[in-house]
Design a binder for these strands. Structure first.
Ligand SMILES: [Mn+2]
Ligand SMILES: [Mn+2]
Ligand SMILES: [Mn+2]
Ligand SMILES: [Mn+2]
Lengths: 220, 220
DNA sequence: GCACAAATTTAGGTATCTCTAAAACTGTGC
DNA sequence: GCACAGTTTTAGAGATACCTAAATTTGTGC
C-alpha cells in the first residue's frame, strides 16, 4: 500500500530484517535497543508499518516482515552494501569508515545511482566486509563460510567475511594486514586466543577470541 | 549559534544566496516561488534562520545572508557542484540529469566524501554546466564570460557556461553536440535566433534566442 | 493624505518522528 | 491460580516543517 518509505521506515525495516535472520519474530525492545530509540517509539512506528502491510504485528508478541517489507529491507541493504563497496573501491575509504557514510546515503541515492555504481564495480556479490549484496531481484549470494573459531590448528585459511559491527575489530585487523582475501595459517589454538601467520606480511599475529569469533573463512 | 543545519535550512540558505547574487535583499515571495512553498512557510523559516544569525531579516523588507549564512550556503553549493561534476565525470551521468541527484545528496555527504571526490577530480573549479565551484575556503572562481546573445557575427567562440535551470535546454544542446568546451562559429545573427557552425560535428545549427541567452562564451 | 492592492506576517492546524509517564498485558515462579 | 516483574502499549506532549485563512503592513496612485 505504502509507496513512499521515509528514512525512518527504511531504517526500521532494515533493522527488523537483520534481527529476524533466524526466522523468528523480533520483540519491540530489541528493535528499540538496535535503533537507539524508546520502546514506545518502536510501537508507534510498527503500527505505521503494519498499516502499510510491511510488517506483521501481533500485539505483545513481536513483529516480522511481510514479503513486501522484506523486499524493501533488501533494497536498502543493497544500497548500503553497494555504497560500502563503492566508497572502499572507488574512493579509497578505509573499511572501518564505510559504514557510517553508507548508512546515511543509502536512503538518498536514486535507482540510477545504484545501477551506475553497481555496473562500475562489475556487479559485485560481496561488500568490503564479505557481507552478501542482494541482487536487484532481492537474491542474497551465499555465505557458506565457517567461523574461524571452529577451525582447528593447523590449518590454512582465506578470510572471506568479517563481522563489521565493531569498528575496533576492523581497525585492529587492517592494522595487522588482515582483510577479505587474506590467507593465514593457524599455528596454535588456545582457549582465549589463536596464533596465526599472515601470508602477505609473513608476520605472526595473536588474535584474541573476541576477534576470532568475528572471522569467517574458507579452508584450503 | 546554530551548529547543525537541517536539510530545509540548507535549502533556504542556498536559495537566498542565489537570489541575492545582485547584493540586494530578497523578498519572501521570491523565496517561496523558488522553493515551491507558501510565503507563510518562508516567514517562519526565516525567523528560525534569523534566530541562528544566519540571515538578517527586516520585517516586511526582505532578507539577506549574514557572513555565516553565506559561508553555509557556499558550503552547500560546493557540495552540489562537486557532486554534479563527479556524477558526470566518474559515473557517466548526462549533464541534464546531474542536478536532481546532486540536489538531494548535497545535504548528506560528509566532509570526507567531499574531500575525496574533490581530489579524485583534481579539485575542479567549474561544474559540468560551467558554474564555479567554491573552494573549501568559500572563494568562487571567476566567471567572466559574456552572453552569446551579445556577441555579434561573425565570431568564433568556445562555450564556457550554460544556464542549467531549464533541463530542456540542456537536452537540446547535447543533442546538437554542444557542451562546455565546444567551439562554434557564429554565422548569422537574426532577431530571434542565430546560426552557428559546431566545429566538432561540422554541422550548422539554428539556436533560438531562448537558448542563446543561456550560453556564455569565450571569444577567440 | 488616503484608499487600496499586493506583500508579508500571524494564528492555528496537520503530519512525522521522537520522548516520558502511566496503564495494560504476559508469562514465570510459587 | 495468582502475584509480580518485565515487556509492551497507550496517552499526551515537543520539535520540525509544511499548510490555509485571517490579520497587518507597505507603498503606489490619486
Ligand atoms: Mn540508515
Ligand atoms: Mn558491510
Ligand atoms: Mn537541496
Ligand atoms: Mn550545475
Amino acid at each position: 500500500m505504502a509507496v513512499n518509505l521515509t528514512h525512518s521506515m527504511q531504517d526500521y525495516l532494515k533493522t527488523i530484517f537483520m534481527l529476524t535472520a533466524d526466522h523468528t519474530r523480533v520483540p519491540t525492545t530489541r528493535i528499540a535497543q538496535t535503533l537507539n530509540v524508546q520502546p514506545a517509539s518502536v510501537t508507534s512506528m510498527i503500527k505505521k508499518l503494519a498499516d502499510c502491510h510491511l510488517v506483521d504485528h501481533q500485539s505483545y508478541h513481536g513483529v516480522a516482515l511481510t514479503e513486501s517489507g522484506r523486499t524493501a529491507a533488501l533494497e536498502m541493504i543493497r544500497h548500503h552494501r553497494l555504497l560500502e563497496t563503492y566508497l572502499s573501491t572507488a574512493l579509497g575509504y578505509d573499511w572501518a569508515d564505510v559504514h557510517e557514510e553508507a548508512d546515511r546515503l543509502e536512503h538518498y541515492i536514486s535507482e540510477e545511482f545504484e545501477d551506475r555504481i553497481a555496473s562500475m564495480l562489475g556487479n559485485p556479490l560481496y561488500d568490503p566486509h564479505g557481507d552478501p549484496i542482494p541482487g536487484r531481484d532481492g537474491v542474497l549470494p551465499p555465505t557458506p563460510w565457517p567461523c574461524l573459531l571452529d577451525v582447528p590448528a593447523p590449518a590454512t585459511v582465506t578470510i572471506r567475511r568479517v563481522d563489521s559491527s565493531q569498528r575496533d575489530a576492523l581497525v585492529f585487523l587492517s592494522s595487522k594486514g588482515i582483510t577479505i582475501g587474506t590467507t593465514c595459517t593457524v599455528l596454535k589454538t588456545a582457549s582465549s586466543y589463536i596464533m596465526i601467520d599472515v601470508s602477505s606480511t609473513h608476520k605472526t599475529v595473536r588474535l584474541p577470541n573476541a576477534i576470532v569469533q568475528r572471522l569467517f573463512v574458507d579452508q584450503i
